[in-house]
């Protein structure tokens, strides 16, 4: 079902937007593209619609997988890259890289590397906290505190940095699915696919981790290695998306929970693929609605996912307390 829904949604997404672009124009944009003097609609299809659609799918899928990984690692259905501050880590390091003004660091590659490193370090940090706290909610509080703390540091960085750097960072932090270019897609796809394949390789330990670290260990799982792999994959997926699309909230938390409720399983092979597909569909749908509303109201993607995601998280909490 999801396998059918994704292409349908992607199709509608491609043709949404205020400027009408026909099927044949898409065909020509892909196969008969004139790079020297392209027609405007070909250019729009190639440089705007296709990257935007691809990024919506990749971002939705990557964040959902990252969320699932964290939920299983921490044995906490309320975990996710955003609420646990992995995004914040990426943001903080991107802020550092922007504010230094060193061209190497402010290049795209510099931004991506900074985001990955930041995400990884904050992943390790939250993991070390997770040993100290027993309650699911406490860990979330720590994640939120990490978020507040980094916002404060970023705020201070902003106040001492020059206007131009400040602008560039502010724009980045607003987040967008539209800033990616066609030429960047292969690199992003490569890392994304590496992340997915990596996750599929740890399906076995993930399945066992569900019953807790002790039992997983007694069943022969090398917990230390698995933890490190999970944190690395989460950092890769979250950092990648954060670097290119800015922080996108709640997708990683909400989608895996939705998938578990629908599929009623803890088999991670199924959960991973279903989360990826559902995440992709979800973000496509969000972005589609944003485009339909564009003429009346402008909603940034991050605000829109929060609008839907936050109530859903409250629903999950209430459901568990009931």
């Amino acid at each position: 079902m999801l396998l059918i829904a994704l292409p349908i949604m992607a199709y509608f997404h491609l043709f949404a937007g205020q400027i009408e672009i026909g099927m044949s124009e898409f065909y020509d944009a892909i196969f008969n593209f004139d790079p020297v003097n392209p027609k405007t609609n070909h250019l729009l299809a190639r440089e705007f619609r296709i990257p935007r659609m691809t990024m919506a799918i990749i971002a939705g899928a990557a964040l959902s997988i990252a969320g699932l990984l964290m939920q299983t690692l921490f044995n906490n259905p309320l975990a996710g890259p955003y609420v646990l501050g992995i995004n914040s880590g990426a943001s903080l390091f991107v802020a550092f890289s922007f504010m230094t003004g060193i061209p190497l660091l402010t290049s795209d590659l510099g931004t991506v590397s900074s985001a990955l490193i930041g995400a990884f370090l904050f992943g390790v940090l939250i993991m070390s906290f997770s040993y100290k706290v027993k309650s699911h909610i406490s860990l979330l509080l720590i994640g939120l505190m990490l978020g507040s703390f980094t916002s404060a540091v970023v705020y201070i960085l902003q106040s001492v940095s020059s206007a131009e750097e400040l602008k560039a960072f502010t724009m980045w932090a607003m987040g967008s699915l539209q800033h990616t270019q066609l030429s960047e897609l292969p690199f992003i796809l490569l890392l994304f696919i590496a992340g997915i394949i990596g996750s599929l390789f740890i399906v076995k330990p993930l399945n066992v981790l569900v019953i807790g670290e002790r039992d997983a260990k007694l069943l022969g799982t090398n917990i230390r290695v698995v933890r490190l792999i999970i944190i690395s994959l989460t950092a890769l997926l979250t950092g990648l998306i954060t670097a290119y699309c800015g922080p996108i909230a709640f997708v990683g938390l909400a989608i895996p929970n939705l998938v578990k409720i629908v599929f009623k399983t803890q088999k991670h092979g199924t959960l991973l693929l279903a989360s990826a597909l559902t995440g992709g569909i979800f973000l496509l749908l969000c972005d589609l609605i944003i485009q339909l509303l564009e003429q009346h109201i402008n909603i940034p993607i991050n605000a829109f996912t929060s609008l839907i995601g936050a109530p859903f998280v409250v629903f999950i909490v209430l459901r568990r307390l009931a």
Binding site: L43, E47, F48, T106, E164, K167, A168, W172, Q178, Q181
Partner: peptide
Amino acid sequence: PGIGTKRQIEKINPHCKH
């Protein structure tokens, strides 16, 4: 454009070269 270098402009508006 509100910004003084092409490099910075490209950063916040990667499609500007079109």
